[in-house]
Amino acid sequence: MSNLIEVRGLSKSYQKARGMFSRHTVLALSNVSFSLAAGQTLAIVGETGSGKSTLAKLLVGIEQPDSGEILLAGQQLNCADYQKTNHLIRYIFQDAARSLDPNQKIANILHDVLRYSTVLSFEQRERKIADTLKLLGLLNEHGNYYPHMFSGGQLQRVALARALILDPKILILDEALTALDPSLRAQIVNLLLELQQKTGLAYLLITNQLRLVRHIADQTLVLHKGISLDYGDTSAVFENPQHEYSRKLMKSIEY
C-alpha cells in the first residue's frame, strides 16, 4: 500500500524570552517520522506540550520545520508548495464554532473556500455545496443558516463540510471531537468511518481519548516533549508499549 504522506526526521524549535534580555531555545519536535496511507487513521497522542499541535501546523504549512522533510504522494513539500496542495490536507479545529465566521451564512463560507481554491463557476459551486452538505447529513437549506443556529453536532458537520468540499486526501482532526458529548461524538465518529470507507480518506487524529484511538486508529504515535517514543500498529502500541512513559500514559487515562 503506497503512502499518501511520509514525514522524515521532522524537527521544530522556538526562541522564547527568558527575562528581559535573554532568550532560550525550546524544542517542540525532534526527529519525528511516520507515514500514512489512503483509508488509514494515525492517532497522535501525548500530554499537553508534547508537540502534537506543532506537528499538525507543520503538515499544513502554518509553520515551517527547522529540519526534516514532508513528502506528499512522493513529492517533497516546501514553502511554495502549500498554496498548491492546501486542498489535499485539510485541518479540522477543536472548536468548530470559533473556526466559523459568525457573520456569514454557511453557503457563503463554502462559496469562499471554493472561490479561492478552484476555478468552478457559481453554478458549479452551488452544486458542489449541495452535494457536500448532503454527504454530511445536512440539508441544502442549512446553507442559509448562520453558525449560531446549529447544534454542536451540526456545527462539527459544517466544519467537516468546509474541509471536505475541496476533496482532500487527508484530514487532520486536532482534538476535534473532544468538546462533543458521548452520543454526538459517536455520531461523528460513525460519520467519519463511513466517509473513510466511501472515499479512502486518511485521518490524522490528535487526541488523548484512548478509547477512541483504540476503536478507530490503525496506527498510533506517542509523543513526549517533542520526541517519538512509540510508533506502530495501534494494537501493538497499546498491548506492548516500548517506553515507560507510554506505559504510564496508557494507565493514566481511562479508556
Rank of each mutant, 00 (worst) to 15 (best):
T54Y: 01
T54E: 07
T54P: 04
T54W: 01
L55W: 03
L55S: 00
L55V: 05
A56D: 03
A56Y: 04
A56G: 13
A56L: 00
K57I: 03
L58K: 01
L58H: 02
L58T: 04
L59G: 06
L59Q: 05
L59Y: 06
L59N: 04
L59H: 09
V60R: 01
V60H: 09
V60D: 05
G61W: 04
G61H: 03
I62D: 04
I62S: 00
I62K: 00
I62M: 05
I62Y: 05
I62R: 00
E63N: 10
Q64K: 10
Q64H: 09
Q64V: 04
P65D: 14
P65H: 11
D66P: 03
D66N: 10
D66T: 02
S67M: 09
S67W: 01
S67P: 01
G68T: 08
E69L: 13
E69P: 03
E69T: 12
I70G: 10
I70Q: 08
I70E: 09
I70L: 12
L71W: 07
L72S: 11
L72V: 10
A73T: 13
A73I: 08
A73W: 03
G74F: 12
G74N: 08
G74I: 11
G74V: 11
Q75P: 11
Q75C: 09
Q76Y: 05
Q76E: 15
Q76W: 07
L77M: 14
N78P: 00
N78K: 02
N78W: 00
N78D: 15
C79A: 15
C79N: 15
C79Y: 12
A80D: 11
A80E: 12
D81C: 11
D81N: 13
D81P: 02
D81R: 00
Y82L: 05
Y82S: 09
Q83M: 08
Q83K: 12
Q83G: 14
T85E: 08
T85F: 04
T85Q: 14
T85M: 14
N86E: 10
N86M: 04
N86Y: 11
H87S: 15
H87Y: 06
L88I: 03
L88R: 15
L88D: 12
L88W: 00
I89D: 01
I89H: 06
I89M: 08
I89V: 14
R90I: 06
R90Q: 15
R90K: 13
Y91P: 11
Y91F: 13
Y91G: 08
I92E: 06
I92M: 10
F93P: 11
Q94E: 07
Q94I: 05
Q94D: 10
D95T: 05
D95K: 00
D95Q: 06
D95H: 04
A96L: 00
A96Q: 02
A96P: 06
A96F: 02
A96I: 01
A96N: 03
A96E: 00
A97R: 12
A97H: 13
A97L: 15
S99R: 08
S99W: 09
S99G: 14
S99L: 08
S99Y: 08
S99K: 07
